[in-house]
Design a protein around this nucleic acid. Sequence first.
RNA 1: GCGGCUAUUGUAUAACGGUCAUUACGCCGGUUUGUGGUACCGGAAAUUCGGGUUCGAUUCCCGGUAGCCGCCCCA
Length: 430
Amino acid sequence: MNKDKLSTEPYKGVRDFYPEDKAVQNYIFNTWHNTARQFGFEEYDASVLEPSQLYKSKGAQNEEMVNEQTYTFLDRGDREVTLRPEMTPTAARMVTGRAKELYFPLRWYSIPNLFRYERSQRGRLREHWQLNCDIFGTDDTTADMEILMVANQIFQNFGAENGEHYKICVSHRELLNELFQHLDLSAEQRLAITRQADKMQKMNVDEFFAVITEIAGSHTELILQFLQATDLAQIPKILHSSESYKEISGFIQNLSEKFSCPVIFDPSVIRGFDYYTGIVFEIFDLHPNNNRALLGGGRYDDLTSLFGGEKISGVGFGMGDVTMRDFLESHNLLTADITAPDMMIIPTDQEQNLKAEEVAHAFRLAGFATAVDMGGRKFSKKIAAAGEQLVEYAIVVGVDEVESGQYTVKKLADGSEVSGTLDELISEIE
RNA sequence: GCGGCUAUUGUAUAACGGUCAUUACGCCGGUUUGUGGUACCGGAAAUUCGGGUUCGAUUCCCGGUAGCCGCCCCA
């Protein structure tokens, strides 16, 4: 290997999509598009470039994240620019920009590519695509239910089963907040507990007990009672009379009973960011190799305050293509759209290439995806190659065909042949 | 940013410190000068880089680089 030559590997943490990979991605994207449309969502999009300020404005924590975990640089006009690491701020920006003329509730979805500057690992690369679905401008819990039904339907449309391949876990931000308030915990304690809750599944019980005791001291028991609850009824009694308790219990019951979408109460579902204020949820991959969330989201009551104007609330989720592909592969649910041409025109030798291109043109105008193999191999090899690429039909173009005007189209799957003029063939194999 | 593991042809792999570096798939060609996929024959193609130990290193040691896995963080 000559080290002076350029590497054929893609840039660190990003992927090449060879045709077989692109076919998988198309299958995933098509299922996402179709499901979003099934629920009446409209697609939006924006540039990958955003002013860095869009991500820094949410607080110091975010500023650190932008500085260390995003692709951020100065443009030629000394403006600080960031490759978008998430879509929600962009969506908030766009919704606010036209808040006066948009009709709410607004159902929007997008499949943006997102970038993050960090060490890659299984399920987390530096560039990925993420389906974002949101319902903006309503506080009604029906919207929360609908958003989860979209999420569930996506998995159904991939042929996955709730409870067998994945599970849907829900919680409510206010429940934990109320508990914190009741116990009069400091902001630092709250943050520390919130951080730990996410990791509960990865630790054993004793370890977890020790960690929480260190943070919360005498309140450990109540906090553990909350975090270890496997059912809404098991959380501390003092929370049972709250509005959020009523909201989430109705939510769970309705989804399971009315919409065949069983969801599980799981208090360890927190979601990292501050803008969530109501119901939060995650969908987990149940395959042992993929012990992580495939999708996460929740309700926010004020996403647009940065831009001034009226508050706009909403509910939404994001899910990534990398974890989705791992999910489908692990559970053997993957099918891919074949992208081979419908028809391959095969000149017997290169003298016939121009004529072959003419023949191809006729079929293209008739609606066939048609390619010409103008390479220098023997034409028997060309037929073999077309067959292996799963091309549907092949037509050999040689001196005999050109002189007689009679061509033979071969169906490669079974070897059957039909002969005639080009016009006859075109109408024949429709 | 931190830690663990790995590095052999395009891919996947084999090789007690001594081989002409194994095998399979894929690729190219032929058996087959006008009709494919299976069979047979042949071909091209590799030890990540730099040092060290040794008569001799793919193999052992050190360092660089890259990849994978995990941690941190998770938008």
